[in-house]
Simulated scan of single mutants.
Amino acid sequence: MIVRIMGEGQVRLDDTHLTELNELDDELLAEMESGDQDGFRRTLGALLHAVRRLGTPLPDASLEPSDLILPSADATLDEVRHLLGDDGLIPG
Results as ranks from 00 to 15, higher is better:
residue 75 A to K: 01
residue 64 E to F: 11
residue 74 D to T: 13
residue 82 H to I: 09
residue 81 R to N: 11
residue 84 L to H: 03
residue 61 A to L: 13
residue 78 D to I: 05
residue 88 G to P: 01
residue 79 E to M: 08
residue 59 P to Q: 10
residue 87 D to A: 15
residue 86 D to G: 09
residue 66 S to L: 06
residue 84 L to T: 03
residue 77 L to V: 10
residue 84 L to D: 02
residue 76 T to M: 05
residue 69 I to N: 10
residue 74 D to S: 12
residue 75 A to N: 04
residue 70 L to C: 02
residue 73 A to Q: 08
residue 58 L to S: 03
residue 70 L to I: 05
residue 67 D to G: 11
residue 72 S to V: 08
residue 82 H to R: 12
residue 64 E to A: 15
residue 74 D to Y: 07
residue 85 G to K: 07
residue 66 S to P: 04
residue 60 D to G: 10
residue 66 S to Y: 03
residue 80 V to H: 02
residue 84 L to W: 02
residue 66 S to A: 15
residue 70 L to E: 01
residue 69 I to C: 10
residue 63 L to K: 15
residue 75 A to T: 05
residue 60 D to W: 11
residue 83 L to W: 07
residue 81 R to F: 08
residue 73 A to E: 12
residue 58 L to C: 10
residue 87 D to Y: 14
residue 71 P to S: 06
residue 58 L to H: 03
residue 76 T to C: 07
residue 58 L to M: 14
residue 69 I to Y: 07
residue 70 L to W: 00
residue 84 L to R: 04
residue 66 S to G: 06
residue 62 S to N: 12
residue 83 L to V: 07
residue 63 L to D: 14
residue 65 P to C: 11
residue 63 L to N: 15
residue 81 R to G: 06
residue 72 S to M: 11
residue 65 P to T: 09
residue 72 S to D: 13
residue 77 L to G: 01
residue 77 L to I: 12
residue 87 D to C: 13
residue 72 S to P: 06
residue 74 D to K: 13
residue 79 E to C: 06
residue 63 L to E: 15
residue 85 G to E: 10
residue 71 P to D: 04
residue 68 L to E: 01
residue 75 A to C: 07
residue 85 G to L: 08
residue 66 S to W: 02
residue 64 E to N: 13
residue 69 I to D: 08
residue 61 A to H: 13
residue 72 S to W: 08
residue 61 A to K: 11
residue 67 D to E: 11
residue 82 H to G: 09
residue 88 G to Q: 02
residue 78 D to Q: 12
residue 76 T to S: 14
residue 88 G to R: 00
